[in-house]
Design a protein around this nucleic acid. Structure first.
Length: 777
DNA sequence: TTCCCGCGGATTTTT
DNA sequence: TCCGCGGGAA
């Protein structure tokens, strides 16, 4: 056998025998012809050399990917272990694997089918030596990252008030996604502003990650690329191994992922990327649409296949989506079409406020369920920001409709779960100082801040990390006598757990930790409802661990921790539960539902107020809108509210400018008063849309309720807001020191007029209108 | 050391 | 509005 084989893989012994569908070549042909349209077939049959599949929404791309993998294996004799398939979520990977197994039987077992991050973890663990990593490294999530960063800042005496840890973190993350390591950055960074600070913190932060045996999300990608660049022999092995590479959602890859792919595919050039530039919505986390737009430049010999037939949505929904996305410049031209029926017009409703909006949505879901027998699980509600989910949840509860929320606070991010996971992490990797600090006094054992500070000082001096710092403290006696005893007993606890752990299943270890740490006892003693629900969550954690044990896929605790760290929101979406699904528009990518509601169709919310200034951001919002609309199969409802409370402050937003782009014939306005008609007014002229020129004022769908077009005035009147110019609630302002902001609240009047303003970069401030160096924009 | 209260900051989106 | 943190008191 020519190809590199996977040592762990029994050469797919089953796969030749267990392929009912593909035994004979012409059967395969027949199958492809029956199941796929001509461009889809072309994509499947193109096996060698670079391939770009531009897959419009709902054009059957998952089907193409799965059939292509099956085709490679069956018709070209490609071994499953020579294929790398990268998807966006674990859920997508699992589904795809299942479908391939449906076609080929168990042959697909040894196929690498996972997210970028999961694939990188796998590589890094195997190549830990070359990557100069501890093989039992742990993965830090956002909050761990921030904890570590804060410590680094403290160590360097950088004022966290002056430089928000979050912005430094964001910057470091961006740098990592651009493959900029600390050494390089020191040379390139300016010696002023944020970057000057970052040039000090980033190297230390990175060193501390290493000391703690930890990697953050971005490291997973960056370190893998570094590994491949520095070790040609390792790279060569993986190039040989992954002769065929397929990437889904290519439009959302960042620079690190882009380079990794190019490195791996360099040798055989069998790189197949699938994506849709119109669905690129992760710019904020480093995704670069140029990756897909430039694929043909990167691989001049690339074959390009466009999948433009949509099988998902009604003609009406597709037309609306097309109208919205067509306003974007810089896109690959493609026209989605469908043979599906026109369907029912899109419903629009402008509610009085957000509570009313939720009510209307619930009434409609209940109505569809009652009169048309629509299952709850076939209904989804999307929104722009997680904050919107609460009111919707309240509504659903009141209407007694079953629902599940995807995203928001992840299960594994809950305090009690995170605590226990930190115990487990320490068992795997005793160097992990961040975890130690989190749990050393949880539950309370009387090891307080002062003692901890002494411990830390000692650790810093002697360069000790994690559990190692405790014996040192015991010897030197830097802490008082009774603290000493407490430290000792904690250390003994951890030592004995560590000894037992390797022999036990994950569920048993978890139970052991819960019992012996006193965590459960402490919660039981609390006797509050909150403690009860935490206990409930912990039970759920044990269940998840037991499930993990029984699947037997991983190798114990280590893999369980990795899995929990890399789990995405979508991954715990269950189709079984029969409930209405709530999620952000971002999370909705890649999914489809017969009935879709998009709530909060208002300027300032969607498109989000932070995107008005930058055309590129605005285009991203528009793509997000396109994504949302194209999730719908049969029915789409768009809703908004004339008023809503945000941070407890009442605001009123005009209808979303995206509504104005949807052709009249596609929508039916159910609002009282012709709201949609009014919404169309300000932006309906030929000059509407985005103008980037400086001279001509960009059409600004402002949230102001003061001066403005008659349409906006009447919207304000209906909303019942005070309309006194120049600082009405919602007015966009510019402040000499604080920059851009939006007026949130007015108090007093005349010279005493006080304004609460939300500034884009400086948070909420109260200013006296008379004195503030500020004007409306 | 811990608990409680008050204040300020935050929210765009997430592997 | 809600959450997390810091400061002060027991």
């Amino acid at each position: 056998m020519l190809y590199v084989t996977d040592e762990q893989c029994p050469i797919a012994s089953g796969y030749i025998r267990s392929t009912p569908l593909f035994q004979v070549p012409n059967l395969m042909d027949e199958l492809l012809q029956r199941e796929l349209n001509p461009p889809q077939q072309e994509a499947v049959r193109h096996t060698d050399g670079p391939l770009l599949i531009l897959a419009g929404a709902g054009s059957g791309k998952t089907r193409v990917i799965t059939y292509r993998i099956a085709y490679l294996m069956q018709m070209h004799g490609v071994l499953p272990q020579n294929i790398l398939a990268v998807t966006f979520t674990n859920k997508a990977a699992a589904e795809m694997r299942q479908r391939i197994e449906g076609l080929l039987g168990s042959a697909a077992m040894s196929l690498w089918m996972s997210t970028f991050h999961a694939a990188c973890v796998r590589i890094l663990r195997r190549e830990a030596d070359a990557a100069r990593l501890s093989p039992q490294f742990v993965i830090y999530d956002t909050s761990d990252q921030l904890t570590l960063l804060r410590q680094c800042m403290k160590e360097l005496h950088i004022d966290a008030e002056l430089y928000a840890p979050q912005s430094i973190m964001r910057r470091i993350s961006t740098l990592k996604n651009e493959l900029m390591d600390p050494d390089t950055f020191i040379q390139e960074a300016g010696d002023f502003g944020l970057d000057e600070i970052v040039s000090h913190v980033y190297p230390l932060y990175q060193r501390r990650l290493q000391d703690n045996g930890a990697l953050d999300f971005d490291d997973l990608l960056m370190r893998t690329v570094q590994l491949m660049r520095r070790h040609p022999d390792v790279l060569e092995r993986y190039q040989q191994r992954f002769r065929y590479i397929m990437v889904d959602e290519y439009q959302d890859t960042n620079m690190a992922q882009y380079h990794l792919l190019n490195l791996l595919a360099e040798r055989y050039r069998n790189l197949c990327v699938v994506g849709d530039d119109d669905q690129s919505v992760y710019r904020f986390r480093g995704a670069n649409v140029r990756n897909i737009l430039n694929f043909e430049r990167d691989y001049p010999d690339a074959t390009v296949v466009k999948l433009e037939q949509n099988y998902r949505s009604t003609g009406t929904i597709l037309e609306a989506a097309g109208a919205v996305i067509s306003k974007n410049s810089r896109r690959k031209e493609k026209t989605l079409w469908t043979e599906n029926e026109r369907g029912i017009p899109i419903g629009y409703f402008c509610a009085q406020d957000e509570v009313h909006e939720a009510e209307v949505i619930c009434e409609n879901i209940a109505g569809l369920h009652r009169t048309e027998g629509v299952a709850y699980r076939d209904c989804a509600i999307f929104y722009r920001t997680n904050a919107q989910s609460r009111v919707l949840e309240d509504g659903l509860r009141r209407a007694q409709l079953p629902y599940q929320v995807i995203g928001g606070l992840r299960f594994y991010d809950r305090k009690e779960i995170k605590d226990v996971l930190c115990y487990l992490r320490l068992l795997v990797n005793p160097q992990d100082t961040v975890s130690l600090q989190r749990i050393i006094n949880v539950p309370r054992r009387g090891i307080g801040q002062t003692s901890l500070a002494k411990l830390e000082a000692l650790a810093l001096e002697r360069e000790l990390y994690g559990l190692d710092m405790i014996p040192a403290a015991l010897e030197t006696g830097v802490v008082g006598k009774n603290i000493l005893a407490k430290l000792r007993s904690f250390h003994e606890l951890m030592a004995s757990l560590r000894e037992e752990a390797p022999q036990m299943g994950v569920a048993d270890i978890t139970r052991e930790v819960l019992e012996r740490s006193g965590y459960v006892d402490a919660l039981e003693a609390e006797q509050t409802g909150e403690a009860l629900s935490r206990l409930e969550n912990l039970r759920e954690l044990v269940t998840a661990a037991a499930e993990f044990d029984s699947h037997g896929e991983g190798e114990g605790l280590q893999d369980f921790l990795t899995q929990t760290a890399l789990l995405s929101d979508q991954d715990n979406l269950s189709d079984e539960s029969g409930s209405v699904v709530l999620m952000t528009l971002h999370s909705s990518k890649g999914l489809e539902y017969p009935v879709v509601f998009i709530a909060g169709m208002e300027n300032g919310l969607f498109p989000h107020s932070r995107s008005f200034d930058e055309p590129a951001e605005m285009e991203e919002e528009r793509r997000l809108c396109y994504v949302g609309i194209t999730r719908a199969e049969k029915r789409l409802f768009l809703t908004g509210a004339a008023r809503r409370r945000i941070y407890g402050v009442e605001q009123s937003h005009p209808p979303s400018l995206f509504l104005a782009d949807i052709p009249t014939s596609c929508v039916q306005d159910f609002s009282s008063g012709a709201v949609l008609e009014m919404a169309r007014q300000p932006w309906a002229s030929p000059t509407s849309g985005m103008t980037t020129g400086n001279g001509q004022a960009r059409v600004r769908p402002s949230t102001s309720v003061g001066a403005g077009s008659s349409a906006r005035k009447s919207a304000a009147a209906r909303a019942g807001s005070s309309a006194a110019a120049p600082y009405g609630v919602g007015t966009q302002v510019h402040h000499q020191h604080f920059g851009r902001g939006v007026v949130q609240k007015r108090e007093g009047d005349g010279d005493q007029l006080k304004l609460t303003v939300v500034f884009r970069d400086h948070g909420i401030k109260k200013v006296l209108a008379k004195f503030a160096p500020m004007q409306p924009v």
